[in-house]
Each structure stands twice: as C-alpha cells, then as structure tokens.
Write a protein that binds this DNA or RNA. Structure first.
Lengths: 156, 156
DNA sequence: GCGTGTGGTTTTAATTTGAAACCGGACCCC
DNA sequence: GGGGTCCGGTTTCAAATTAAAACCACACGC
C-alpha cells in the first residue's frame, strides 16, 4: 500500500520528499491548511477535487506525518486535519513555489494574489540562498557533496 | 494535449506552477539539469525512468519554457536539454525541498548528500523568510492578499 | 553491409485518477 | 420513532496516465 520510490535516487534529499508531496494535490492541500482550512469539506470545496482522492491524499499526508487528525474543537462529531511540525516546515517551499509562480507565470501587469507581511501588508522579500557566512549564493556557487560514507555506498 | 489545471484555484500563484512541475519526475529532471546533466541518456540513466515518460516530461518542460533544446557542442548529432532562465529560477524551490527533506526525512545520524557552498564546502544556511524590512517571518506572520481587482472576480 | 550507441516512438498492460453513486452516523423536526 | 439532511467518507466503474518493453531511425565505425 505504501507507495515507494522506485528509482535509483531514492535516498536523495530531493527524491524522498517528492515521494510524500510530489503529486498535483498534496501541496495545494497543505497550502489550504496554512490558510486555516481544517475540515474535509473545506478542502474539498476549495480545491474541487473528488472526495475519494482527497481522502487518499489526506491519508497519505497523515501517514507521512505532514498532517494529523484531531477531534474538532466545536463539538461536531468529525475530525479536523491540521499541519504537524513537519507540515509547517513546508512553508518555505510553498513560498518558493509561489514566488517562482509569480515571477514566471504571470504577465507583469496581471493581477494575482500576493503573500504579504501581515503586519504591514507589504510583499515578502524574495527568498535568497546564503552561505554560512551570509554571502548570497546562486546555483552555480553550490555543489552537492556525498557524506563521509560510513556505509560503503554513496548517493549522489 | 496540453494538460490543464481543472480546479477552481487555477489562477493562484501556487497552482499554476504545480501544473508545470507538479509530478513525480519533473523536479528530479530539473535537479539533474542543475547538476550538469544535459543529454537524454544521462537523465534516463540517472533517474531510471522509462524512456517514453522521460521524453514526455522533457517535452512538457520545454513546452513550459523551463528547459530548452540546443544542438550539442561536441558535434554529436543529437540535442541537449538545458535550463532556461525560468528553469534556473527553480533553484530556491529545489533548495527548499532539499532542506525540508534533510530536516524531516533522515535520522539525525543518517548520512545523506548535502548541498554545500562550492567555495568552502560548508552547508548552506537555512532558507529564511523575510519581510521587506528584513524581519524574519513565520507562516503565521503572513497572509495572502487579493489584488486590487480590476476584473471583478477575486482569487483566493 | 553489419553491428553498435543514442534518442526516441509505438504498443500494450498496469496503476492512478476522477465522477458519481452509495453508505452510515449524528442531528433535526415532527 | 420515522423521515430528511448534512457531513465525511468508501465503493464502483470508466477514463486517463504511467510504465515496461519492443520497435525504429539515424549516424558512425569497420
């Protein structure tokens, strides 16, 4: 039942996460959760996806420890879905996705929702990659490095 | 043929990008491209996916302007796949994904590849969200805001 | 001409997705 | 207690997608 990655790179820090959230819906569900949605029906209404696949996705997210089910606060007989610590850790990724979308998927003058600072309504600063010492880095300034390798086999 | 988003949220800055890269392989291909891979066979060998779906994914990435095909430099009769500007814009997202993976998908002592500063071999700083004025923000300090809305309908 | 490496496409089967119907408990109303 | 409704799913079944494998085409070396 547990869907497993099948390719050689299954140990990589990019591939494993994709196994958990690398489908068309999971990140949208997580985003909705950040927006405060908690109930099955809320997700379903907002995203407009079939109930069976919403159920499957939520199950998967819970199984991966990204969301958790809790009893409702308001006494209704159902449960609510909330982000775990791990799920909340996805926020930078969501911001990166959104910023990339804003930069490349909209015409310069095309209106779109914006993620803004709650305190003053200004858009966030663009995410920037920094070295330990604070230098701003680009992709070409980085390299993936294998670990010391105590196990004998090296992932890329 | 062009796969289109079907749900209500299709205008959102999160949903549109997912339409382009929200599948199990595209981001891995892009990551490989950042690692310097360019040839069909290189991707296929590294990722171990079927050739037809690699071809489909590359076609899709090219169609979305994320990669581009260029003639080979070394005179071989084939083409190479390289990232466009738009594709290179995915680097922060890839870093976010990787950092999340490193934080939550590996045991503390489990060895894994690391993305490091090419200059000194130190790991990158954790990505951080900042307001315009430089304050570090968390998810709870932000809010999505609809645009002024000249069109009459508001996206979430 | 023949074998080989590369970069695909085609064919076919397996898996996933999606729409819609169905189900069951809680609550409401009488 | 007997309907009716809302919510949160599961089941069923068709359609789309993915995957494996076979096939094909071109360039090259010999």
């Amino acid at each position: 039942m547990a869907k497993r990655v099948s390719h050689k790179d299954s140990g990589c820090g990019v591939a494993r996460p994709l196994d958990a959230i690398g489908d068309r819906w999971s990140l949208l569900i997580v985003r909705d959760a950040f927006d405060g949605l908690r109930r099955f029906g809320e997700f379903q209404k907002d995203l407009g996806l079939a109930k069976n696949i919403l159920a499957a996705r939520l199950r998967n997210l819970v199984a991966h420890g990204i969301m958790d089910t809790i009893p409702t606060s308001d006494g209704s007989p159902y449960q609510e879905y909330v982000l775990t610590e791990k799920g909340r850790g996805l926020f930078p990724l969501l911001v990166a996705l959104r910023q990339w979308g804003e930069d490349f998927f909209f015409e310069p003058n095309e209106a779109h929702v914006l993620l803004v600072d709650r305190k003053n309504g200004l858009p966030l600063r663009k995410l920037e990659l920094r070295a330990q010492d604070g230098r701003i880095l680009g992709a070409e300034d980085t390299i993936v490095r294998s670990p010391p390798d105590s196990t004998g086999n090296a992932w890329r």
